[in-house]
């Protein structure tokens, strides 16, 4: 860890920004399509059949939207630190070139996490903006929602990097997606209140998943329902810090072997 420098990490981040800025136009477009499709399909389409009232006050779309914002930040953080980092690490070899400069491998790993946080924030911001057209009210609380995006991105960037640091074959991401990302997406309270549908034991399991915390936090902020939001944020920060530490160390050691 003593080989990590914030300045070094920033330079790695800068390289990614450089690449991204050259083609941001077609990089950012999918970030608009995805939320629109989800909100139309789940919210407007399915939502018409969902009984109003209770949890769904304000309409089903308004219930689903904040959770989808959290999920989009998750996707931004995870995608960048899984496939993208893996390809750079094992195929394109650009990290080899970077660590021959004053950058350390710890700088490179930390820089990638930092960049993933940026991507996650961009994804999430685009999604949040679009939810305004689907019943999410424009309030000052949304500023706090914007600030929550990097935190969610950080947690999932750390998870993705940690997983990437453990594997040698790109095929293993299939497990990561089918056993972690997809169940998180479906069972973290984005589409229905799990507290009302799950047996108690499963509720505990769900509450321990990072995405549940992200969804609960985001919905709480957007709707002004503050209970548990602080705890959610703490949880995301703790997981992010612990796994970043693990991943940066592990990648650094593996490289300098």
């Amino acid at each position: 860890m003593k080989r990590l420098s914030l300045r070094g990490a920033t330079r790695v981040w800068e390289r990614n920004l450089w690449v991204y800025s050259k083609r941001w136009v077609y990089n950012i477009l999918p970030n608009f399509f995805e939320p629109v499709f989800y909100l139309l399909g789940m919210g407007v389409g399915l939502g018409a059949y969902v009984a109003a009232g209770g949890q769904f006050e304000g309409g089903y779309t308004a219930f689903v939207a904040p959770g989808l914002v959290a999920a989009s930040a998750m996707n931004g953080g995870i995608f960048e630190t899984t496939y993208n980092v893996f390809v750079k690490l094992h195929f394109s070899k650009i990290y080899d070139a970077m660590v021959a400069t004053p950058l350390s491998f710890e700088d490179v790993a930390a820089g990638e996490i930092l960049w993933a946080v940026t991507r996650a924030t961009l994804y999430g911001t685009a999604f949040l903006a679009i939810t305004l057209f689907f019943g999410v009210p424009l309030t000052p609380r949304l500023l706090l929602a914007l600030a929550a995006l990097p935190l969610i991105g950080f947690c999932f960037a750390a998870i993705g990097t940690a997983f990437t640091s453990l594997i040698d074959s790109i095929d293993l991401y299939t497990y990561f997606w089918t056993l972690f990302v997809t169940p998180s997406f479906v069972f973290s309270g984005i589409f229905f209140p799990i507290e009302e549908r799950f047996p108690p034991a499963l509720i505990t399991v769900a509450e321990l998943t990072p995405l549940y915390n992200a969804v609960h936090m985001m919905r709480g902020i957007v709707r002004g329902e503050w209970e548990g939001v602080g705890l959610n944020a703490l949880y995301l920060a703790a997981v992010g810090l612990a796994l970043s530490f693990f991943a940066v160390r592990r990648l650094g050691r593996r490289f300098l072997a």
């Binding site: 450089w18 070899k93 650009i94 070139a97």
Partner: peptide, 17 residues
């Protein structure tokens, strides 16, 4: 590392730039 230059065996240029 700040004072040396390296030309590795395999070209590892940044293909995205």
């Amino acid at each position: 590392k700040s004072q040396l230059g390296v030309v590795p065996q395999m070209d590892n240029l940044d293909e995205e730039l």
